[in-house]
């Protein structure tokens, strides 16, 4: 069951589209449910599809197409580091190595305490601030240095 908060937020998104185009809100609805539950289980996707009166498989298509949706648990904090060219030129590899060593996990792995998951990201459209990372899809940190990474991780409790 979608929470009433989630429904309220989805309903707000629905106001953006014509009444007969509920499916249009699926991008937001999946984001809202993922933010609330941490990741998108098949049940979550199914609930969203039902709420928007669209075929489940169509919602699944969307959830699997856009890579910020997580179809498996990602721990409490998902840390996505951009490694694309502009970041790579500014040594994102060193940031990745530092994170891997510090967290003791590789890409797509979750720390033993279930707190962090490290992901490799594609271009985030903020290359001027390279190297950079995003925490849980919605908080970006730019101009990373090992010291800054330490501070970011310390803040995530």
């Amino acid at each position: 069951m979608l929470s009433s908060e989630a429904i309220q937020k989805i309903d707000y998104e629905l106001t953006k589209y014509p009444a007969d185009q509920r499916q249009a809100a699926v991008m937001s609805a999946l984001r809202i449910v993922q933010t609330e539950r941490g990741w998108l289980s098949k049940e979550s996707i199914s609930e969203v599809a039902q709420y928007l009166a669209m075929p489940e498989i169509a919602a699944m298509e969307v959830a699997t197409f856009y890579n910020m949706y997580d179809l498996a648990p990602v721990g409490k904090y998902k840390i996505t580091v951009c490694t694309n060219i502009s970041c790579m030129l500014r040594d994102s590899d060193e940031i990745v190595d530092y994170l891997k060593a510090k967290l003791g996990v590789g890409f797509n792995e979750i720390t033993a305490d279930g707190k962090f998951c490290l992901k490799e990201g594609e271009c985030m459209g903020a290359c001027g601030g390279a190297p950079l990372l995003i925490v849980n899809n919605h908080t970006m940190h730019e101009f990373l240095t090992p010291e800054k990474v330490d501070a970011i991780l310390d803040d995530l409790q």
Binding site: P55, I57, A58, M60, E61, T64, F65
Partner: peptide, 10 residues
């Protein structure tokens, strides 16, 4: 009349 198959992933 019903979307029962889809192409998932990218």
């Amino acid at each position: 009349g019903m979307m029962e198959l889809g192409m998932v992933g990218r």
